[in-house]
């Protein structure tokens, strides 16, 4: 495999939920690539389909409602959508590690963290129990948990939120994965702890060379950690660009709206903040055309069909709806 080839490539992924109102598409033809050793950020508001995209990749959609209708997830040259359940179980926690948002629900409350951590090694390697226990202590040390020999015997409730998230990261990284999917890994944490965790993830990425998909709604976190960014709106990718390019030259009205509506430390105090009017339509009411036009309630000529997704500058892709796409002068 050449270096040019991406580690993960998602092509035309469509994921739908089977509801009383019919099959509703939460993810509507999403494509992106993750390069080796790089971090891809997926950003968007609640309900835009960013978590569903991640869950589709590792095939952990809620069953039986969640279905991937179309698309390929090429990971190291093979399609994960075609893998058997047994193969997938080896991939998850082995080659792909997952960090969930809520560290309390991601950990089993009635098992000591040592047991949960060694399980990763017992499932994915040929280690003995004793070796797995030793390896678990090493992992806790790696994620900078003080006194890991004692901590390994703790239950999750005995740890603080930041410590718990470190344990979840340790579990995700235990088998030296090629890819880590982190779904809002710091949303439930305080800013100071968030800074610790993001810093830790960056250092570990440097040491271990893995790729990361970071899902978040926080553009600040994106700016600090990602190499490339995918902006999702109502199940679709509206813009995709290298991080510096996206923040300097956002081309889609939604991306600009998101950036403008955040108060920054240099925004004049008590000034009126720009807002994005309206709200995201429910999945059942989404139009086939430009969905951001739908939110803005634009009148007059609007696209009836889906806007094209085009490469405007090298590596900078955007949905070219005539109302929402704007090239800055």
């Amino acid at each position: 495999m050449s270096d040019e080839e991406p580690l993960l490539e998602v092509r035309d992924l469509i994921t739908a939920f089977d509801t009383d109102a019919g099959l509703l598409r939460a993810v509507d033809q999403v494509s992106f690539q993750v390069k080796r050793g790089r971090t891809l950020g997926i950003v968007g508001e609640s309900g835009c389909g960013k978590s569903v995209t991640a869950m589709s990749i590792i095939r952990l959609l809620p069953q039986p409602m969640g279905k991937v209708l179309q698309g390929q997830v090429m990971f190291k040259g093979r399609d994960l959508q075609k893998a058997t359940d047994v193969e997938m179980r080896k991939v998850r926690g082995g080659e792909i590690g997952v960090i969930f948002q809520e560290p309390m629900t991601a950990l089993n409350p009635v098992q000591r963290i040592g047991k949960q951590l060694s399980e990763c090694f017992l499932l994915h390697t040929k280690m003995s129990r004793k070796e797995a226990w030793e390896a678990s202590i090493e992992m806790l040390r790696l994620v900078r948990i003080p006194a890991p020999e004692q901590r390994i015997g703790d239950y999750p409730h005995q740890l603080s939120g930041g410590m718990r998230q470190r344990v979840v990261i340790a579990m995700a990284l235990a088998c030296k994965p090629d890819l880590v999917i982190a779904d809002e890994p710091t949303t439930a944490l305080d800013v100071t702890v968030q800074a610790q965790i993001l810093d830790l993830m960056k250092q570990l990425q440097k040491e271990m060379g893995m790729s990361v998909i970071l899902i978040t709604h926080d553009l600040g976190v994106i700016a600090e950690t990602c190499d490339e960014v995918v902006v999702m709106y109502a199940g679709r990718v509206v813009e995709r660009a290298p991080v510096a390019e996206l923040f300097e030259r956002p081309l889609h009205a939604y991306t600009r709206g998101l950036l403008d509506s955040m108060p920054k430390l240099d925004t004049p105090r008590k000034s009126v903040l720009p807002t994005i009017p309206g709200m995201v339509a429910g999945l059942a009411d989404l139009v086939p055309g430009c969905r951001f036009c739908q939110r803005m309630g634009r009148e007059g000529p609007v696209l009836r069909e889906r806007p094209m997704f085009e490469e405007i500058h090298p590596g900078h892709w955007v949905e070219t709806c005539p109302n929402c796409f704007e090239e800055p002068a």
């Binding site: 003080p146 603080s160 930041g162 410590m163 800013v191 100071t192 702890v193 968030q194 800074a195 610790q196 993001l198 810093d199 926080d218 553009l219 600040g220 976190v221 994106i222 700016a223 600090e224 991080v243 510096a244 923040f247 950036l259 955040m262 920054k264 430390l265």
Partner: peptide, 23 residues
């Protein structure tokens, strides 16, 4: 420390943070 921990939405400002240890 609290101020330096805020992630700024500007990739040019990847700053050196004051990282607080512990909780």
């Amino acid at each position: 420390a609290l101020l330096s921990a805020i992630p700024e939405p500007d990739p040019r400002l990847r700053k050196k943070r004051i990282l607080l240890e512990g909780d």
